[in-house]
Design a protein around this nucleic acid. Sequence first.
RNA 1: GGGGCCGUAGCUCAAUUGGUUAGAGCACUGGACUGUCGAUCCAGAGGUUGCGGGUUCGAGCCCCGUCGGCCUCGCCA
Length: 593
Amino acid sequence: MLRSHTCGELRIANVDQQVTLCGWVDKYRDHGGTMFLDLRDRYGRTQVVVNPDSGTDNVEVAKKLRGEDVVLIEGVVSARLMGKDNMKLPTGEIEIRATRVQLLNRSLTPPFFPNQEELPGEDLRLKHRFIDLRRSSMQETLILRAKIIKAMRDYFADNDFIDVETPILGRSTPEGARDYLVPSRVHWGQFFALPQSPQLYKQILMVAGYDRYVQVARCFRDEDLRADRQPEFTQLDMEMSFVDANDIIAMIDGLMVQLADKMLGIPLTTPLPRMTYDEAMRRFGSDCPDLRFGMEIVDCSDLAAQTSFRVFRGAVDEGGHVRGIKVDRRAEEFSRKRIDELTEFTKNDFGAKGLAWFRVEQDGSLWSPISKNLEPAVLDGIKSRFQAEPGDLILMLADTWEVTCKGLNGLRRRLGAELQLYDPKQMHFSWVVEFPMFDKDEESNRWVAMHHPFTAPRSQDLESLKKSPGDCRAQAYDLVINGYEAGGGTIRIHDHSTQQDVFDLLGMTAEMARDRFGFLLDALSYGAPPHGGIALGIDRIVMLFARLDNIRDCIAFPKTQRAMDLMTEAPGSVEHKQLHELHIQVETPPAKS
RNA sequence: GGGGCCGUAGCUCAAUUGGUUAGAGCACUGGACUGUCGAUCCAGAGGUUGCGGGUUCGAGCCCCGUCGGCCUCGCCA
């Protein structure tokens, strides 16, 4: 090592020691005779003093130093002059009196500085990620990420899990998300797919008797990006044999207790709260509700059925619902303009036809543009159903079940954030369980698997599997943290005939199933144990534990919303020769390289 | 594919209803200064207002297109 110490470790106890430090020039303050250099590495910052005692050559080198130059400093640890301590720094009681100043490498003037207070635009940060990653907040996040992954690995190792790697080059399956494809050179016109998850492999491992499997697995999905979605992301993937849903949940409960304790010092009590999917949709309109605050959905469909007001009555007559949420005591904060914005929000983002609203006046009456259309009994009913008090604001949607869920969930999340209805440091962990097995695809009017087609139905729902698939509930569980889906898993089907029933229901013939998943069906036929597992979104968990609001800040080299890496400029075009070897022709040649 | 926000000096931002030579802080360059830690002081350099077109006597500002970043619906576990 060129250095004897890091820039974060020297203290008053080290005074008089001869040391060598290496790092980047974080800041320089040149007073002519005396010069101060703040030397930075990932461990901290240490002040270096260069003055005539350091020697003319060293002064000359120091004078020319600028931010982000890389230097080596030899010197003696000294207590700072009386009253010159900097209590903002852990090293603020000492300084290095330089006896040698060596420039290890000059830096160009960077487009931005790691220590600058205003964050540059994200495109600039991504293009110069090597600078951005020097920022202490990025370093803290990546260090937290490493700690979380270490804690996860330790936890599963302690519980006798075996870490097994699964292929990156796999086979495309038409289920689920769009695949990233990799052309095969050897096999003309054929493609590998990058894994969306190691789902099938881990099930095979269970059949093979590796009854506790774990992997930190990179996954790929070629779908549009979001603040919490990247095209490649990392899962803590695990699978267990001879278990039921409670066993998996308990295992993850234990992990969350450790993570919350070790990373945040937050004590969690287990079992973590659970809620069924149906209850979550009814009370919060979401399968991953943010439970840090209330503002639960109130259903007034029965009241709406009694009115002659067409908007309400019509929605119910058409099989829809009239539901709403209530803002407590803060109606005066909602101008007409703000309510109009919320109305546009529900229309544009969730396809609602409109947003009905009521303000509770001081006399207890409900004021609304539509009050005159509603019978007094109905207004009274709404008021008491919401337990409305003067100053409250009620927001209601009259629409299909789905639109009321999405719209009210959207409103609830938005208002929860805007009105600061929760402490941003608060963390809420819970489970949503008993998801439906199937979802009706509107376009083709066919059943599609809500999770994936290997999900086992609840044993008591086996009857409904064929009779009324919409009522069939799965042995599925999602981990929800602060309104984010942090992970999800299921107990899998382990017998061939149930698996075939599900394939049938999904409109998959035996031939199709054999063609796509033949190896899995084979495996299930050779002594498959009951098994199940879960995958946790590591990027999202890091985001939540770091209290960040986007996943890119938790990933060293993330992609932009258009799935580009601005630093490497990937994806890029390739040589014609490469395409030729792969037997690929590009339909429309790119306009420019 | 749809909706929205943004793009002005290296960086962060400002610029009256569309009106003279587009400004500030930081950074940068040169100089001064032996105790600063957001050092200070003096001087200087730095701009095709993302790009292309249009409207106008006149466009950073208005309109159309396009490129890029972000948020979001669809999509996606």
